[in-house]
Amino acid sequence: MQIFVKTLTGKTITSEVEPSDTIENVKAKIQDKEGIPPDQQRLIFAGKQLEDGRTLSDYNIQKESTLHLVLR
């Protein structure tokens, strides 16, 4: 499924993921596309910071959901 990751600069990254993918996994995909190390990434969805060990389905993230990427 496709999800969108919006950066603070307003850029939107499209990523191909599975509901069973972990947040860590998603951060790795963002690193592949943007070159941002996962340890600098914080992903936010519905006002919550997403934890690395959890999966997209844990957070009820569905296709075409938009996550927000904040850098630390």
Rank of each mutant, 00 (worst) to 15 (best):
I30S: 02
D39W: 14
Q31P: 03
Q40W: 11
K48S: 08
K27Y: 06
H68P: 00
K6C: 13
L8F: 13
A46C: 10
T12A: 04
K11H: 11
K27V: 04
E34H: 11
M1L: 06
I36N: 03
I30P: 01
S20H: 11
Q2M: 13
N60C: 07
I61H: 01
G35Y: 03
K29D: 05
E24Y: 15
A46R: 14
Q41T: 09
P37T: 06
E16D: 12
K6F: 06
L69A: 02
G47E: 04
E64D: 14
D52R: 04
L67C: 15
G53P: 06
F4Q: 05
E18G: 08
R54Q: 07
K11I: 10
S20Y: 11
R42L: 14
A46S: 08
E18S: 14
N60M: 08
A46Y: 08
V5S: 01
R72P: 12
A46E: 14
G53N: 12
T66N: 04
V5K: 00
V26I: 12
T9C: 15
G53W: 13
E24W: 15
L8A: 13
E24M: 13
S15K: 05
Q62D: 09
K48P: 01
I44E: 08
T12S: 06
I61D: 01
H68G: 04
F4P: 01
L50E: 01
Y59I: 02
K27A: 03
L71Y: 09
V5P: 01
P38T: 15
L71M: 10
L71A: 08
L43M: 04
S20V: 05
L71K: 06
G47N: 06
D21Y: 08
K63N: 15
G53H: 14
V17C: 08
K6P: 02
L43T: 00
R72G: 11
T55E: 03
V5A: 02
D32W: 10
Y59T: 02
I61A: 02
Q49V: 15
E34W: 15
I30R: 00
S20F: 11
D52E: 08
D52W: 03
D32M: 13
T7P: 04
Q40M: 12
K6R: 10
G35F: 04
P37C: 07
L69M: 08
R72W: 12
E51T: 06
E18L: 14
D32P: 03
I3S: 01
L8G: 10
K63H: 15
T14H: 07
L69R: 00
A28R: 15
T22W: 04
M1N: 04
T7M: 15
Q49M: 13
I36Q: 03
K27G: 01
K11Y: 12
T7N: 06
S15C: 15
G53C: 08
G35I: 02
S15W: 14
E51R: 09
E64C: 11
N25L: 12
V5H: 01
E34V: 15
K11C: 11
S15D: 04
I13H: 04
R54L: 11
P37A: 09
M1K: 03
N60A: 08
L71W: 08
K29R: 10
K33F: 08
L71Q: 09
E24P: 02
Q41I: 13
N60H: 09
Q41C: 09
F45Y: 11
Q40Y: 09
L56F: 04
K33H: 10
G47H: 05
F45C: 03
K27L: 11
I3K: 00
Q40C: 12
T7L: 15
E51P: 02
Q31I: 06
K11T: 08
P38S: 14
E64T: 05
P38A: 15
K6T: 11
S20W: 14
D32S: 12
K6N: 06
D32Y: 10
G10A: 04
K6A: 07
R42K: 12
R42C: 15
K11E: 09
I61G: 01
N60S: 09
I3N: 01
D32A: 14
D32F: 12
D39V: 08
L56W: 02
Q41F: 15
L50S: 00
R54F: 12
I23T: 04
E24F: 14
V70Y: 12
E24K: 13
L71G: 07
L43E: 01
V70G: 05
Q49S: 10
Q41W: 10
H68M: 13
P37L: 06
I23Q: 00
K11N: 07
I61E: 01
V17D: 01
R72I: 15
M1T: 03
A28C: 09
S15E: 13
I13L: 09
V17R: 00
S65M: 10
L71I: 13
G47Q: 04
L43A: 01
L43C: 01
K48G: 05
L8I: 12
E34K: 05
K48I: 14
P19K: 07
I44M: 12
D39S: 12
Q62F: 10
N25F: 11
V5M: 04
Q2V: 15
I13R: 01
V5D: 02
H68V: 13
I44Q: 05
V17L: 05
H68T: 13
T9S: 13
K63E: 12
I13D: 00
D58R: 01
N25E: 12
E51F: 07
H68D: 08
P37D: 08
E34Q: 07
I30N: 01
D52P: 06
L71S: 08
I13V: 06
G47K: 04
R72N: 12
Q2N: 11
A28T: 10
G53D: 11
Q49R: 09
I23F: 02
L50G: 00
T66E: 07
D58G: 03
D58E: 10
N25Q: 14
R72Y: 12
P19F: 06
A28L: 14
V17E: 00
D58C: 03
K6E: 08
L56G: 00
E24I: 11
K29F: 11
F45P: 01
M1V: 05
L50R: 00
L50A: 00
E18T: 14
D32V: 13
Y59N: 02
E16Y: 14
K11P: 05
R42I: 15
G35N: 07
V5C: 03
R54T: 06
N60W: 04
S15L: 15
T66F: 07
